[in-house]
């Protein structure tokens, strides 16, 4: 009796959830495919589907004479992302070591403070850094951008390092100590090798977050310190330059390769979903 009811309602469940999930996948992937196809258009306008295919926008993008501003912005972005990620890793990993295993209220408060940039509106923080550095007498530079980015991306390294430390079996550390190893030796030979994949995943996410950062760069970059996302935004706002599609194509291809490599090396997606 209930069996009949179940098959009817169960069928509706499978249909509704299945359709919505398909829509979800289409919505997630669709825009990526649309951008990739648009980047190979012959048209100077954003028509979809493209009337004919060509690589002319990629040729224009890689032309050093025509796209020097874009190259310059990309160079600045990579430089800032590299510095900020190094700084974030150097400072966030020790911080994670210090408080990952502590259950005290002080450690929890510190952890919340270190993770705050992930949920606080970084746009307000971006404006705050502009005011802060201006009142201190500094003009926007790549160094100030590095500091601003470092604050915003440090949580990524901190979070993955804490996660890998809490998954660390304490028995390993105890046996190492029981066998007479010093604390530094245990750290070097046991702890560090086991948390390195977590640190690497966090550093990778931090690097990408810096490369994509808008809220801080929006306020701290100017004509001299142009950053790639801000330059792309300018190109979209002014003429809807199709080279933006070519830049997007390059970024999507690089990120795809990097995700696959990081997945192989450190199990990236597993670390991102908790």
């Amino acid at each position: 009796m209930t069996g009949h009811l179940n098959t009817w309602t169960d069928r509706s469940y499978v249909v509704v959830i299945g359709l919505l999930a398909c829509l979800g996948i289409a919505v997630l992937v669709g825009p990526v495919i649309v951008v990739l196809m648009t980047s190979f258009t012959t048209s100077a306008a954003l028509k979809f589907p493209p009337p004919q295919l060509s690589t002319q926008w990629y040729v224009a993008l890689f032309d050093p004479a025509r796209s020097s501003h874009i190259h310059n912005a990309a160079y600045n972005s990579l430089w800032v992302a590299t510095l900020a990620t190094s700084l974030a890793t150097l400072l966030a990993v020790p911080a994670a070591l210090a408080i990952a295993r502590l259950r005290t209220a002080g450690a929890r408060a510190l952890e919340a403070a270190f993770l705050a940039p992930l949920i606080l509106p970084t746009l307000a923080y971006g404006l705050a850094t502009l005011m802060f550095f201006t009142l201190l007498g500094y003009r926007p530079s790549l160094w100030l951008l590095t500091i601003g980015h470092f604050i915003v991306i440090a949580p990524f390294v901190f979070r993955t390092t804490v996660a890998s430390l809490t998954q660390l079996d304490p028995v390993l550390l105890e046996s190492s100590a029981a066998l007479g190893a010093g604390r530094l030796y245990t750290f070097r030979r046991i702890t560090l090798p086991l948390i390195t994949p977590g640190i690497a995943a966090g550093a990778f996410l931090a690097f990408i977050a810096s490369l994509d950062n808008v809220p801080v760069s929006l306020f701290l970059s100017n004509a001299r310190t142009d950053m790639l996302p801000i330059r792309m935004w300018g190109m979209i706002e002014s003429t809807l330059d199709v080279r933006v599609a070519a830049i997007s194509g390059v970024l999507i291809a690089s990120v795809t390769v990097l995700i696959l490599v990081m997945e192989r090396l450190v199990g990236l997606t597993r670390r991102m979903s908790g």
């Binding site: 996948i25 997630l28 992937v29 669709g30 825009p31 990526v32 649309v34 951008v35 648009t38 954003l46 979809f48 996410l205 990408i208 490369l211 994509d212 808008v214 790639l228 996302p229 792309m232 935004w233 979209i236 809807l240 933006v244 599609a245 830049i247 997007s248 970024l251 999507i252 990120v255 795809t256 990097l258 995700i259 997945e263 990236l268 997606t269 597993r270 991102m272 979903s273």
Partner: peptide, 24 residues
């Protein structure tokens, strides 16, 4: 596969995703 589909747009610049929606 599903995780890859979710992570790829997340790690693609917000400006790229915004640009995609103009084209759509």
């Amino acid at each position: 596969l599903l995780l890859f589909i979710i992570v790829l747009p997340l790690l693609t610049s917000v400006v790229v995703r915004t640009f995609a929606w103009i084209a759509i």
